[in-house]
Amino acid sequence: MRDLGAGLGFLIRGQRWVFGHGKWFGIGLLPGLITLVLYAGALVGLGYGADDLVEWATPFADDWSSPWLGLLRNALTALVFVLGLFLAVITFTAVTLLVGQPFYESLSEEVERTEGGTVPESGLPLWRELWISARDSVRILVRVGLYAILLFALGFLPVVGQTVVPVLGFCVTGYFLAEELTAVALQRRGMVLKDRLALLRGHRMRTLGFGVPLGLAFMLPFVAVFLMPGAVAGATLLARGLVGDADADDTSKGETAAEG
């Protein structure tokens, strides 16, 4: 529970940071507003077309009597929309970070500068950083897609599908949101996707404490836009904490080995 609280603390600290640095809050809003317009249109389209998609996918139920036909298709329509919303929450961060890469990179660097110490630099040109971010985002989305398919299938299980599955969905959402956001600071430290995922797995509860509340908040589109600058700032603080803990663990292991 302490690690969960610590993760939430980083999220709150990030929001406080941007509100205390109004210039960076304003800069961080623009990419989110652009992405919001795109996603709002996509979700509206899904809302209008989900029932037609379900009807097309379930021809076997055309001859079912009432109320079973309505119950099946209404449940599946709701699941399709929830799945679309789930994917939107995950991909919103990836797309917004890609659109706003230069803005969020500068914001993250400023957070590190105000926190003291040297600001790590990747040494890569902007085009290379954009390529790495896009490539890693696709890899993350593939993982998320596999989880989404599994959770969608489990959603048909009685009771479990209506209780456990939504909780697991929010955990998956929060975990990968944290990965996408901390990538801004961790890529500057030369950490590839495999290393970043290993770092987050080693601090799973802290990662969930940061990502799950943010994922819940991101369910509200306008809230997501206004929280995005603070989420990047908070993820930078989280990344600094995780790397510091990892370095401390490595030092401790080294001292133990030396003593042995």
Rank of each mutant, 00 (worst) to 15 (best):
M1Q: 11
M1H: 11
I12E: 12
I12G: 11
F19P: 05
K23C: 04
W24Y: 12
F25S: 03
I27A: 08
I27K: 14
T35R: 03
V37C: 03
L38S: 05
Y39R: 05
Y39Q: 14
Y39T: 10
V44L: 14
G45N: 05
G45E: 09
G49C: 04
A50E: 12
D51K: 12
E55M: 11
A57V: 07
A57D: 03
T58D: 02
P59I: 00
F60C: 04
A61W: 10
A61D: 10
W64V: 02
W64T: 10
S66P: 12
P67Q: 00
L69Q: 13
N74K: 06
L76G: 04
T77C: 07
L79N: 13
L79E: 15
F81W: 12
L83R: 01
L85Y: 11
L87I: 01
T93A: 08
V95T: 03
T96C: 01
G100Q: 01
Q101L: 11
P102A: 02
P102K: 00
V111I: 09
E112S: 15
E112G: 11
R113Q: 05
T114I: 06
G116C: 01
T118R: 09
V119Q: 00
P125H: 03
W127C: 08
S137C: 01
S137N: 03
S137W: 00
V138L: 06
I140A: 07
L141A: 04
V144I: 05
G145R: 01
A153L: 14
L157P: 09
L157Q: 07
P158I: 00
V159D: 09
G161Y: 06
Q162T: 15
T163Q: 01
V164S: 04
V165H: 03
V167R: 00
L168C: 06
C171F: 10
V172W: 02
T173S: 11
G174V: 00
G174L: 00
Y175A: 02
E179M: 10
L181H: 03
T182S: 14
A183I: 11
V184N: 10
Q187G: 12
Q187E: 14
R188F: 02
R188Q: 11
M191D: 08
M191I: 05
L193H: 15
L193I: 15
R201P: 12
G202Q: 02
R204W: 11
M205E: 12
R206F: 02
T207C: 03
T207H: 02
V212P: 02
P213G: 03
G215H: 01
L220E: 07
L220Y: 10
P221R: 00
V225R: 00
V232C: 04
T236C: 08
R240Y: 06
G241K: 09
G244L: 04
D247C: 06
D249L: 14
D250G: 15
T256F: 14
A257G: 08
A258W: 15
A258M: 14
